[in-house]
């Protein structure tokens, strides 16, 4: 069973993080919690794409146009990644039905 977390929602970067590029990978640090995050190369691109509120479907559209990946695979893996980000409060989720 696929995990299509947040597919019907929009997501946007949360504030309060120091972000930097290191060898093509996006790294972040929370001043509040002292936690450091490495988003990797693909995660860094996702982070760039959600600088403004973006639906997950639109995010997947962009990624499948830029990367060699089938849409169902991309959708599932991106939704899992966003779930991890959401748990760490790195992103804010906007319910489009509200």
């Amino acid at each position: 069973m696929t995990n299509l977390y947040l597919v019907e929602h929009a997501v946007v970067q949360a504030e309060g993080y120091i972000v930097s590029d290191m060898n093509g990978e996006k790294v972040m640090m929370s001043v509040d919690t002292g936690k450091y995050y490495n988003l990797g190369r693909i995660g860094g691109r996702i982070w760039e794409l959600i600088a403004w509120p973006t639906t997950v479907n639109r995010l997947v559209d962009t990624l499948t146009s830029e990367y060699d990946v089938e849409r169902p695979v991309c959708e599932e893996q991106v939704s899992g990644f966003l779930q991890s980000m959401h748990k760490e409060a790195l992103i804010e989720v906007i319910n489009l039905e509200a």
């Binding site: 002292g34 936690k35 450091y36 990797g40 693909i42 995660g43 990367y67 990946v69 990644f81 991890s84």
Partner: peptide, 20 residues
Amino acid sequence: MENRTKQQWQVPTLETLDVS
């Protein structure tokens, strides 16, 4: 017809490290 070379995909992962 689109003929752009696409980049290699990798599974996006979130690594965390508590610096303190």
